[in-house]
Structures are given as C-alpha cells and as structure tokens.
Simulated assay, not measured.
Amino acid sequence: MSAPFVDLTVHHSPRGVSDRIAYGFTKALRFCADTFFAKRYGHRAIVLETVAAVPGMVGATINHLKCLRRMCDDRGWIRTLMDEAENERMHLMTFIEVAKPTLFERLVIMGVQWVFYLAFFALYLVSARTAHRVVGYFEEEAVLSYTLYLREIDEGRSPNVPAPLIARRYWSLPEEATLRDVVLVVRADEAHHRDVNHGFADELAGLQVDESKIAPSPPHESGIRLAA
C-alpha cells in the first residue's frame, strides 16, 4: 500500500510566553518518555496514546458547554476535537494488540491519566490557546516517535508483525497489511492533529490560519472534519 504523505519538517517556532511554556512543557515530557521507555516504542505508544486521547475530549467538553452558555455556534470545533479523541483511542486499541501492557504500565496509565486530565482541564480553562499549542507540540513529538519506530522496524530491531484486525478495519487496510503499514497511517493521523491544533492556537491568538497547510488525515471510519 502507498504510504500517506507526512511532512516531517513541520515545526511551529514558539512566539511569546504562551508558546514557550507549551514548548518547554512538551520537551520535559519527551525527556521523561525517552528515559522511561527508551526504544520500546510499542509500549511507549500504549501509555502515550492513553494520554493523547484526553485533550480532544476536554476541549470538546469545554467548547460544548461554552457554546451552550453563549448560545453560539462552535464552527466545527467540537466535532473535530471529539474525532481527534476517538482517533487517539483507536491508536491505543491497536497498539494494545501489538505490545501487551504490563501490570506496572497499566498502573502508570491510571495515575498519569488522572493527573493529566485534571491539569489539562485547568489549563484549557485558563488559556485554551496554550492548551492547543501544547497538543500541537505533543503531536510534533508523536510524528518524530513514530518515524523512529519505523526505523526500528525497517532495520529489523522491531518485528514487523501482521497488522491487528482492529487496525485493518479502522483504516481499511488490506489483509496483508503489517505493523509498518499501521505505523504509517498512525503517523499521518498525528501529523493531522498537529496541524489542526496549531491552527486552533493560531486562531485563538488572532493569527491567520492557512487550512491548505493542514495535513490530510488517512481515511478511517469516523473521519476528521476541519473547523469551518
């Protein structure tokens, strides 16, 4: 199958205090992930995708309530964020089939998810712009991580096992699809989330958003809609 195009060079250079806080926070978490998981990319994906599925749901919830209070239209943001959360959850369901989480990793997931949910909810209430910028930087790191995962597979250090059934169904992959094919479409999803969240942050900062630069998402069941 042909690989979805992903621009690996995209990086939003921090502008202002809000962006620098978001970038510094992301780099600190990246250091923790690299230290804890090293090159166990399958296990890294399980824990990080659990966290990655939180921001979309938090953003959708807060925007939903805000629109109800203000009796205004959301311009497509709510559906976009809910689709993002569901897409990240499907990433998790896929990698659970690839790398079975240990009991310790399950305990880590439970603790990290609660802490991150509460922290991100508070951040979104204080500064939605910073929250979306954090997610944009998270996704930049995710694209890098999945690129390194592909290298491990291509160089034979990680087995290129058959793609799980749940992944083949979700991304409409062929029967002969492998883990490498899965990582390619997951990386493309992350690139899409990267550009959408940076776009949301730019819009909240009053900047012009060029939607033509938003990476296309691979086809899957839910589809991801862009904000109008």
Rank of each mutant, 00 (worst) to 15 (best):
86 E>H: 06
129 R>G: 01
200 F>P: 00
35 T>E: 09
26 T>W: 02
194 R>W: 08
135 V>S: 02
27 K>F: 03
188 A>P: 06
194 R>G: 03
48 L>P: 01
77 W>I: 13
90 M>F: 09
130 T>N: 00
22 A>Y: 04
7 D>I: 10
11 H>F: 13
196 V>L: 13
122 A>R: 05
30 R>I: 08
101 P>F: 04
144 L>H: 12
200 F>R: 11
203 E>H: 10
107 L>R: 10
176 E>C: 05
169 R>H: 08
215 A>P: 00
13 S>Q: 12
100 K>A: 11
180 R>T: 06
71 M>F: 05
86 E>L: 10
217 S>Y: 04
73 D>W: 09
156 G>H: 14
76 G>M: 01
137 Y>C: 07
108 V>A: 11
94 T>V: 11
16 G>D: 04
165 L>F: 07
27 K>C: 05
162 P>K: 07
100 K>N: 06
84 E>L: 05
172 S>N: 14
120 F>W: 14
80 T>P: 00
172 S>F: 11
180 R>N: 07
219 P>Y: 07
144 L>N: 09
52 A>I: 14
111 G>L: 04
202 D>I: 01
114 W>D: 04
19 D>R: 00
38 A>V: 12
91 H>F: 01
96 I>A: 04
189 D>N: 13
223 G>D: 05
141 E>F: 11
196 V>N: 02
79 R>I: 07
58 V>C: 01
130 T>G: 00
56 G>F: 09
228 A>F: 00
107 L>K: 11
227 A>W: 15
115 V>M: 10
105 E>I: 00
219 P>C: 02
89 R>L: 10
127 S>L: 03
42 G>W: 07
197 N>E: 11
157 R>P: 00
90 M>V: 00
165 L>A: 14
17 V>E: 12
10 V>E: 02
227 A>T: 08
115 V>Y: 13
148 L>Q: 11
125 L>S: 01
65 L>K: 09
23 Y>N: 09
73 D>H: 14
34 D>N: 13
212 S>Y: 03
43 H>A: 15
153 I>P: 05
89 R>S: 10
171 W>I: 09
65 L>S: 05
204 L>Q: 01
114 W>Q: 11
17 V>S: 09
219 P>V: 12
151 R>V: 15
59 G>R: 07
95 F>R: 01
56 G>C: 09
71 M>H: 04
208 Q>E: 15
